[in-house]
Design a binder for these strands. Structure first.
Lengths: 156, 156
DNA sequence: TTATACCCTACTATTTTTGTCAACATTCCA
DNA sequence: TGGAATGTTGACAAAAATAGTAGGGTATAA
């Protein structure tokens, strides 16, 4: 079984996972001015340096604004209802693509028109797209509201 | 951008991709007796040794039967309509899991009950499950039938 | 008895992931 | 005005996963 075992399937990397958690946390504090990344990293026990790399990309792509210096930090560049999970994941992880041949403008295999497995990858891709594009940060905040009874501090 | 760039997202490894292609090819020849793996590997320009590792797992899990010796080969252990894409991918790639915390019996994070990002991973997982469990090899054969005008030899 | 083909295990090269580290720039506040 | 807080950037590196390669063994048909 060497070279065969595998941890999982369709897994997101930490980039997407940490990134979404960070964005969610910033959404909770939307409207409160800049939030230092250190507070986000501490809460979630992540490397601040590593998270910084992710957040930096989100800023360049226009999802976050930053304020430098003391009392600075990061904040959402748009209201939570205008940012979807898909926006975040695509920036951090790239396009959704079970296989190369379903990336727009990407590699195409020789038998493009009749490739049957490709139709499977497309269905998978479309179904993921539908889910992540339909959930906004505001939806997540609403969900949190409904969970308030079980609320645990570190989520904020 | 160092350490930041990434090829894609929710990508299958070659294990799942090659494995499904191989199973599809064997489905095409279902009922014709054992098909040598070499013919499958040649058609798809894959390493026979590598494909053998994948196919070996599929056999152990009961999706394939094998016949050793000259004129031997592999064949589906069940009719194509009784084998789903999900059966194949789960055997080769493991359980579907955008994140560890959504694997049954797997790791659970501290704030289990109120974790909002987890609900996102669950929705993604369920939507993939629904797609791959609903497509059988027979469905893929039917699709091929409808594509017959564009039919290209190597797909067989 | 020989060629064909499955069976099994070990090894390795490459790529991706997941960070670390250090130097620097900007801003606030005492 | 100076230092502490904070964002900005790029180089580097350890660890894990992926994608094979290699080669010997075993069973069977012809």
């Amino acid at each position: 079984m060497v070279g065969i075992k595998r941890g999982g399937f369709m897994r997101l990397s930490t980039r997407g996972r940490y990134g979404l958690k960070a964005m969610y946390q910033l959404a909770i504090h939307y409207g409160e001015g800049p939030i230092p990344l250190k507070s986000v990293a501490d809460r979630q026990n992540l490397s601040e340096n590593y998270l910084e790399q992710l957040v930096s990309v989100l800023r360049k792509e226009g999802l976050l604004n930053s304020v430098r210096g003391a009392q600075g930090g990061y904040m959402l560049a748009k209201p939570p209802e205008n940012i979807t999970v898909g926006d975040i994941l695509r920036i951090l992880e790239g396009d959704i693509a079970p296989a190369d041949c379903v990336i727009d403008g990407g590699y195409e295999c020789e038998n493009e028109k009749s490739c049957v497995t490709k139709t499977v990858w497309i269905k998978i891709r479309d179904s993921i797209d539908e889910v992540i594009d339909s959930i906004t940060l505001q939806d997540m905040l609403d969900k949190r509201q409904r969970n308030e009874k079980n609320f645990i501090d570190w989520e904020d």
